[in-house]
Amino acid sequence: MKRSHIIALVLIAVAMAAFIATLADSSTFVDLAEAKAKPGKEFKVKGYLDKSAPVEYEPIIDANLTTFTLVDDNGETCRVRLAKAKPYDFERSESIVLTGHVNATGEFVAHDMLMKCPSKYNEMQQMGQVEG
């Protein structure tokens, strides 16, 4: 066996391992119903903040706990315990992506959150409405 063949085999093996490991490490996007159906399993859930429900953050008691209610794209809601400080401008967020699992009491326990704030403002359209 030539040395180049061995190298080629090693390359393929490592690439395959990387592929499988990425598959194993990757999480999946689900809706809240699915996450609730499989408590304890880690998912990513996309939705937005329910502004009618309270956003609770008591830094005196726990600076790394924010609780709020998430609404997913199907309108399903769930109380969320996020293990982080309340983000800046949380109330203004457009959409949020949470990473975590549903616990035994039916709450979504999130250890990470990605928040998208409105990047484009529609001032001009509002202006058009005012004028029209």
Partner: peptide, 16 residues
């Protein structure tokens, strides 16, 4: 599970 992830569940970036 890996195959389901490739299917309708949809892959997402690693959570960690």
């Amino acid at each position: 599970e890996g195959l389901s992830k490739l299917g309708n569940e949809g892959l997402s970036t690693p959570s960690e």
